Simulated scan of single mutants.
Amino acid sequence: MKAFIHQTLHLCRCLAACMVLFAAPAAAVDYSLTGFGTVQYTVGDNEANYLRFADNEGTLKVNSVLGAQLDVQLTQTLGATVQYVVAPKQDNDRGTEIDTRWAFVKWRPNDNLTFKLGRQRINLYLDAENLDVGQTYVQANLNPEVYFNAGVLNLDGFSATYNFEDQAGRYWGLQAITGNRDIIQRPPNFSGDFPTNRFEFNGLVLSVDGVDYRLQLAYHEADVYREITRFNGAPVINGSFTAQAAFTNLGAEYRWEDYTLRAEYALVDLYFSNQGIIGGSFRQAGQSKYPEQAGNLVLIRALNERLAVYGSWGRFVSDFDDQYSLAIGGRYLITPSQSVKAELMHVVEKNTRPQLSDNAIPNTTFNLLSVNYNWVWQ
């Protein structure tokens, strides 16, 4: 299966490239090229990094991304999509990389059914598919308690989606997805490449869009594996980390004439164990199942057609991590395809979150100012 998926990804890239070169003489083939980007400056009041890069010296790395997407329509029912981005590396905190975010073939036999094979986004959140496109949402920083899970962006696999409209004009969607992905785990005080976990995903997503609201319920399970070669400085033979995780995400959004209220809740149930031979003796350590819970509320006020302001609250708690955040900000639409945003965020880490920060001291406060420019083009 792994080899087949990699061959499919390679086919998607080659197919899209061929369409660019040969689309002119082939009148039946249609394609479109779009792009997007965000340039963000973030500065904090703490020497420790938060959001991986933001400290009191300031950085352009938080949320800054440059992307391009090619969509190719081969026939009425068959198409392909590739998306590349230039963004900070995920496997360490130094430098940037060109990353393939999407690379899939799509078959749509009718108006209701869609099948995708290849690299595609996992719909954990309300804005999962457009997570990198800052122009498509109001906040400068999507709530870190819910949205910041480094690497959990996409998988290599297969999905089937069924959509329909009911008699009341609501649009329903049901997606089943399966696949795998190597996901980086950012540990505390680590200077090299971050450890890589192998995730095997299976999930279901139910969504409904009404005239002035949308709801989404997502449930995904994952089997996780990582090889361990050292533990507390000692070499390990046949060492491994294994885990079983269940991700439950519920999101809701309601829109009035001038206000929008968003609420999201995320629950991760996790069981993990470590095992290996240390000093000639086999050792195994397990952790009972425990929950990680996160939630956020965002209230957006549209002052006019171009200017909107917002306030948000977020909370994250588990056996190991504990934090909350408050933020206020605003967005100004220069044009329908360009915007500028500004945000002040206040974060209190009651216990440290290595996925988000380098802080090792409990009850630490971060205050962050973020300013960015966003655009899309086609």
Rank of each mutant, 00 (worst) to 15 (best):
L9W: 09
R13I: 12
A16T: 14
L33D: 13
L33N: 09
G35N: 03
N46A: 12
A48G: 06
N49E: 14
L51E: 11
G58N: 12
A80H: 05
T81K: 05
Q83I: 01
Q83W: 03
D93V: 02
F104K: 04
T114Q: 14
F115Y: 10
Q120C: 04
I122S: 01
L124G: 04
Y125I: 02
L126F: 10
D127R: 00
Y147I: 00
A150I: 09
L155D: 03
F158S: 04
S159C: 03
S159P: 05
T161Y: 01
G169T: 03
R170N: 11
T178E: 07
N180C: 03
N189Y: 10
N189E: 15
S191Y: 14
N202P: 00
N202Q: 07
L206T: 13
Q216M: 05
L217S: 07
E221S: 08
D223G: 06
D223R: 05
E227Q: 09
I237Y: 13
A246I: 12
N249W: 06
L250I: 09
L250E: 05
Y254S: 06
Y254K: 06
A263C: 07
L267W: 07
V268A: 08
I278A: 02
G279S: 06
P291S: 01
L299D: 12
R301M: 15
N304M: 12
L307N: 08
Y310F: 14
W313Q: 09
F320S: 10
I328H: 01
I328V: 13
I328K: 00
Q338M: 11
V340K: 08
V340E: 11
K341V: 03
H346W: 14
Q355E: 15
A360T: 08
S370Y: 00
S370C: 07
N374S: 09
W375G: 02
W375F: 13
Q378A: 11
